[in-house]
Amino acid sequence: MDFLQPATWEEALEAKAAARDAVPIAGGTDVMVGMNFGRLRPSLLLDLTRVPELQQWADDDGAVRLGAGVPYARVISELGDRLPGLAMAARTIGSPQIRNRGTVGGNLATASPAGDAHPALLAADAEVEVASVRGTRRIPVTEFYRGVKRSALADDELIAAVRIVPPRGPQQYSKIGTRNAMVIAVAAFGLALHPDRRAVGTGIGSAAPTPRRAPAAEEFLAGELDGLWDSRAELPAATATRFGEMVAAAAAPIDDVRGTARYRVHALSVMARRALTWAWADYRKGDPTCA
């Protein structure tokens, strides 16, 4: 196995173009597990941790441009106020050691249906910025996931960043695991209320072949909230319940060792209902961020 450690983004892109089967490594929390279990035997490992651009985030044209290599621990400590949904998702990931190493870029490239960044990115209408020697393109995150552990990334491309417009409304993230920490999601749900656009964003994790949104539920809720955004009146309990059911209806889960399909559907309906209740309570308080 060869090991390359490019010092610049250009070198990294050139290396990837030259060796398309090169396996990039950021935090290594997926790659090293694969290698240790013999499931992954890269001929070339491309270490991206020395590329400065990937380790930074910046405000850029109304969005936060989050370098693909920024670890979760920094998302939590530095971006908790700007990107609350993603930070809440980051808090649920692994253990402190994993959060110190693991990155959103790695989560995206792995494209596991259980990746915790995905529901938060979906709910926030994030864009994935990918690049190659051929140039740079931005992919709406909804179009990024193409199948179980498959993404829209071409074999000469690297993920440069994700772009998220800091929300004007509250966000929530909930995840079910069968223990109280360090657990892969059995089902997960991300919610973003966008009062500025009078829109609702959702993201479902671990309950379909890819992370996905719940468009019908979003539309339903946006319709129900139409008269409430300005009054900030109480949300009828039935609306939250219905929203939960519609989110659950958008899922297409399977039975596996982590849980049954029926449980996943049930859990999604409860999580979505509760998340909406909390988000609306925050909105009514006029607080754009939340716990």
Binding site: M88, R91, T92, Q172, Y173, S174, K175, I176, G177, N180, A181, V183, V270, M271, R274, T277, W278, A291
Partner: peptide
């Protein structure tokens, strides 16, 4: 809470 920082309940249920 049951669920821990995965944020599934604030006391509900």
């Amino acid at each position: 809470m049951p669920g821990g920082v995965s944020n599934t309940t604030h006391g509900e249920g």
